[in-house]
């Protein structure tokens, strides 16, 4: 609609706008470009000083090495990918169902302690997770869940963020809709699945995006709750590839691994981004 050039007069503010956006955008892209170019660098270029930003002779060696190194060790790389997908997938799916189930009565049912429960949620948003780390670890290790997928999933299911977002979002849905469904004979369970869930879609998308990024990237649970190599998730495995003394030669492999790791998160963002912005506008964050 508004082109850069209106008639014959040059629209300076439009040009200014796009120059700035592109400039900042490039700065934002730097880490990704750096990672991509590092992952393509041959060994001869990896350790140049001063370090070069772009690659001169791109090669796919690092990706091949990644498969080779991890292929010769006793756990194949695909196992880490599988673990990560299972854990993050279940955290996101379970989190959505549990949070939606809890948000529904909190927003729409009139019952005692409703306010208290909601305040508890808001307060727990402020807790830094670190205070909880120690007892959570003791709890898991005592209950014998160590080295089990459940240990990586269960502690993250009851997410205060998801609950908060969904409750705020649900409050804007008119009661009349729910009444209509009830009069037509729908049970509460049916109301939740056929009326609430579809309307909650934007909030669900936002929560899915955040919790997926969180779960996918966090090496902490695997580091603490697992001791066996074949239960590790991707972020922890990548840390192991890069970490420790004497593995300097794997910088390129590391870059390749991290590069592969971002791809799913970008995919999730692209899928959810339209819905995400909708929720932010309506979630009542402004109150």
């Amino acid at each position: 609609m508004h082109g850069i050039v209106k008639g014959r007069r040059v629209d300076w503010s439009g040009i200014f706008l796009y120059v700035f956006l592109t400039g900042f955008g490039l700065l934002m892209l730097l880490p990704l470009v750096y990672m991509a170019s590092t992952s393509l660098k041959p060994v001869s270029e990896l350790f140049l000083f001063p370090p070069r930003f772009l690659v001169d002779h791109p090669t796919l060696m690092n990706f091949r090495d990644l498969l080779l190194i991890t292929g010769t060790s006793f756990v194949p790389f695909s196992r880490y990918i599988f673990n990560s997908i299972v854990v993050s997938g279940l955290i996101v799916a379970g989190g959505i169902v549990i949070s939606a189930m809890a948000a529904f009565p909190l927003a729409k049912h009139n019952m005692p302690f409703r306010g208290a429960i909601f305040n508890m949620v808001v307060l727990s948003l402020m807790f830094s997770p670190m205070v909880l780390q120690i007892p959570q670890y003791l709890l898991i290790s005592r209950s014998g869940l160590m080295n089990h997928y459940l240990a990586l999933i269960l502690p993250y299911l009851a997410a205060p963020v998801g609950m908060f977002l969904m409750t705020q979002f649900l409050r804007q849905i008119p009661d009349a809709l729910l009444e209509a469904a009830r009069i037509d004979g729908a049970s509460e369970w049916k109301v939740l699945w056929s009326v609430i869930m579809p309307m909650l879609k934007p909030a669900i998308a936002t929560f899915a995006l955040f919790s997926f990024i969180q779960a996918w990237n966090d090496p902490y649970p695997a580091m603490v709750y697992t001791t066996k190599e074949d239960m590790k998730t991707l972020p922890l495995a990548i840390q192991t590839i890069s970490g420790g003394a004497g593995v300097i030669a794997r910088v390129g492999t590391f870059a390749a691994a991290s590069f592969l790791m971002i791809i799913p998160t970008i995919a999730v963002f692209v899928i959810t981004q339209r819905l995400v912005l909708q929720t932010m506008a309506h979630s009542g964050l402004k109150e």
């Binding site: 549990i98 809890a102 009565p105 909190l106 049912h109 019952m111 005692p112 007892p135 709890l139 009851a158």
Partner: peptide, 24 residues
């Protein structure tokens, strides 16, 4: 109505108590 509400919240509360409130 109230009971149904509590049943819906229950899974969340259990998770919250087990992994946040009790550890805290």
């Amino acid at each position: 109505h109230m009971l149904e509400g509590y049943i819906f919240i229950l899974p969340w509360i259990v998770g919250f108590l087990l992994f946040m409130a009790i550890p805290l």
